[in-house]
Nucleic acid binder design. Structure first.
Lengths: 137, 137
DNA sequence: TATGAAAGACTAACTAA
DNA sequence: TTAGTTAGTCTTTCATA
């Protein structure tokens, strides 16, 4: 992981469809070098996947969930990851155990998700925070 | 935004490099249809960008930041988005104003980021939570 | 939807460190 | 032995009808 790797990652984060030839020109290396490095970065797991950033709805929110002390947090999280409109499920340290990052059509839909979370028998409490603005690093 | 759009988004979220021809076969439509729809989804802003999910470090964390009441939260957020290792900067509702999602080499580096956040004159308080496990929705 | 042209990615053989 | 390069081939995308 040197400077070239870092620059490749930067370019791909901004636009993962940038042609290897273009990245190569920019960094002053050959197309093959870029390709080899991207392959390696994928094998190493540094690049987890090629994906899209979407905004399907108008409201993003963090729904923080705390679960009962005697249950498997992992199970609950796995179940929630399958719900529509859920982008990430994080198990976190701190007061609350799970954070759902959701992207929903409107606040009504967010509310339905909160309700659904609260309906899970392992869930004892939730706390929701709207994401008012997002900026990518 | 119909069922076909949703399925295209699902495929691309999993692997944004899936060829249009393959998506087309899977959904029973033509390659041109997939391409046109992806183009439209990008123009509409539903697809914000093609990107990569990376894990450059071993530790992910949420650093929650509260800023003084009289400052422009937006400015502070913008500045932090430029820091290395910061994946997202969210302005959120609730007790704390900004959430940084970071991906760092180790806890030492996370700590340096926290320190750096606390050094900003607008920042009055921070609270950090480690992301112990991540699952994509 | 189908097709040919253009662009990009991949294979493999070669070179250099 | 590993990383980089290059030329030729194959795949995907794009434009047009």
């Amino acid at each position: 992981m040197d400077e070239i790797d870092r620059q490749i990652l930067d370019v791909l984060r901004r636009d993962a469809r940038t042609p290897y030839t273009e990245i190569a020109d920019e960094l002053g290396v050959s197309e093959g070098t870029v390709r080899n490095r991207v392959d390696r970065l994928q094998e190493e797991g540094t690049i987890e996947r090629f994906t899209i950033a979407t905004r399907t709805g108008n409201v993003k929110a963090m729904i923080e969930v705390s679960v009962a002390v005697d249950v498997d947090t992992h199970d609950v999280g796995e179940r929630m990851a399958d719900w529509n409109e859920v982008d990430f499920v994080w198990q976190v340290s701190g007061e609350l155990d799970i954070v759902l990052v959701v992207d929903a059509a409107d606040t009504q839909r967010v509310n339905e998700l909160i309700t659904r979370a609260r309906e899970q028998e392992e869930v004892v409490n939730t706390k929701t925070r709207l994401i008012l603005d997002e900026r990518l690093g």
